[in-house]
């Protein structure tokens, strides 16, 4: 029997207010859908355990406030993420256009190795569609991201997109993983590794502030 070990990492959901980030998260972790819109005011998270290539992966998924007034604060969470979902609403041209801004923020604030996936949510609302699938595809291609159209309402592509991002993160960290797999048999915390690396730059960690 192979010794079990865990990998823990963080995924972040970003996008305009109302595109359905919280619903994506609820659908994925609790398999539930709550149609009423209550804005997330803060940063929420949930845990989920997946098995990818026989590796037990525990992911912490962070759901952020999308409202503009909070963006200066939510940016500070980016650096702790290993994977990021950029989410827009296919029925909102505006939310799609804002993806560029979100993406540039990610480039600025997230770690270099961060993996990204583009999500066009609310694919069930075809009659209200403002953003063609092709547009999403094109944008994703331009940024070198994977792209999914999802529906938290009908549970379309939810598991697929989360699993995909988790796989990407695993691949991107494969080197660290393989190294550690040999020597360590208990929990491997990628997020902890990131933080240790962060200590070296010294600037931001001077104060004892906890964002977790």
């Amino acid at each position: 029997m192979a010794k079990q070990y865990d990998v823990l990492f963080r995924l972040l959901l970003l996008g305009d207010s109302g595109v359905g980030k919280t619903c994506l998260l609820c659908r994925f972790t609790d398999n539930a859908f709550h149609p009423s819109h209550i804005s997330t005011i803060g940063v929420d998270f949930k845990m989920k355990t997946l098995e990818i290539d026989g590796i037990k992966v525990r992911i912490q998924i962070w759901d952020t406030a999308g409202q503009e007034r909070y963006q200066t604060i939510t940016k500070q969470y980016y650096r702790r993420a290993q994977g990021i979902f950029l989410v827009y609403d296919i029925t909102s041209e505006r939310s799609f256009q804002h993806i560029m801004k979100w993406a540039s923020d990610v480039d600025e604030y997230a770690p270099e190795k961060v993996q990204k996936v583009l999500i066009g949510n609310k694919s069930d609302e075809e009659h209200k569609r403002q953003v063609a699938t092709e547009q999403g595809n094109k944008l994703a291609k331009a940024y070198g991201m994977d792209f999914f159209e999802t529906s938290a309402f009908t549970n379309h592509n939810i598991t697929e997109s989360f699993t995909r991002l988790a796989e990407l993160v695993l691949q991107a960290n494969k080197k660290d993983l393989d190294l550690l797999r040999v020597s360590i048999n208990d929990q491997l915390d990628l997020s902890a590794l990131e933080e240790e690396a962060g200590v070296c730059d010294g600037s931001s960690n001077a104060q004892k502030t906890c964002w977790c």
């Binding site: 005011i41 803060g42 940063v43 929420d44 998270f45 406030a65 007034r69 909070y70 604060i73 906890c210 964002w211 977790c212």
Partner: peptide, 16 residues
């Protein structure tokens, strides 16, 4: 101002 209310091992809340 926006205050960040942090729960240990938990969520963060923003208060405007």
């Amino acid at each position: 101002d926006i205050l960040v209310l942090h729960l240990e091992r938990g969520k963060d809340y923003f208060i405007s």
